[in-house]
């Protein structure tokens, strides 16, 4: 029985992916292949956002599917299938990131004014997307800055951001995937967003003028990194 009191049959009736996973559990021919085909895009996309390397992202996504297969006999539907799948993905991705011992990239505030055209307001870059080489460079630079900002988050913040932003998961589901409390996820996402804002400070100016909040960013960044450490289970 799930936390909501539903039986696995009821859950399976509601979630077609649970039905499919139950078929995988019973070794139905073709069920696993169908499951891989159905989830590969989402999983590879999440891994790409987390790892930032297409090849590694595919390898990790495959590893997730293999773990799903290995664990099939123990599978008991307790929540949405995707939640279970992303829990496995979360554990694997976090282990991978930690094992790489990836160092945070160079703080963006030291480089935000660099580049051929210097820092520009997001308005100019985003809402006036030209097709010329200059605009292309600006867009590429912006994309790289955002990628760097995402990479500068610690692995748990990054995971929470990716699940929330790109998988449209609510706090409760992220909490389940990351095996945290909803309150901890709320705190994690709040800090992640403040870190992102600090890292992308040069791109969120409106009409070239800094927002009231931007003057606090540098202090905030140090503070939230410390506070986030305290939240670890």
């Amino acid at each position: 029985m799930s936390a909501t009191g539903e039986t696995s049959t009821q859950m399976a009736l509601r979630d077609p992916d649970i039905r499919l996973m139950l078929q995988v559990r019973e070794d139905h021919a073709g069920a696993f292949e169908q499951l891989v085909a159905r989830y590969q895009h989402r999983l590879v996309s999440v891994m790409n956002h987390l790892i930032g390397n297409a090849e590694e992202a595919e390898d990790l996504a495959q590893e997730v599917f293999l773990r799903v297969y290995k664990a099939r006999k123990k599978y008991r539907p307790r929540s949405k299938f995707s939640t279970w799948l992303f829990t496995i993905a979360n554990n694997l991705a976090l282990n991978h990131i930690r094992s790489r011992q990836r160092k945070p990239l160079v703080p963006l505030r030291t480089t935000r004014d660099s580049g051929p055209l210097g820092a520009r307001p997001a308005e100019q870059l985003v809402h006036d997307p030209g097709t010329g080489p200059v605009q292309r460079i600006q867009k590429d630079e912006l994309a790289q800055r955002i990628r760097d900002a995402l990479d500068s988050l610690n692995e748990r913040q990054r995971m929470a951001v990716v699940l929330n932003k790109f998988e449209d998961m609510g706090y409760a589901e992220i909490a389940e995937v990351m095996e945290l409390s909803t309150k901890a996820v709320k705190s994690l996402l709040s800090r992640a967003r403040m870190n992102l804002r600090a890292a992308l400070e040069g791109y969120i100016h409106m009409d070239g003028a800094p927002t009231a909040a931007s003057s606090h960013h540098h202090d905030d960044l140090d503070e939230v990194e410390l506070a986030d450490e305290e939240d670890r289970p």
């Binding site: 997001a122 985003v126 912006l142 955002i146 992102l196 791109y203 969120i204 909040a213 931007s214």
Partner: peptide
């Protein structure tokens, strides 16, 4: 500013 920082991820 928090909203804008979040929206930048769309790019």
């Amino acid at each position: 500013s928090l909203k804008r920082a979040w929206e930048l991820l769309d790019f």
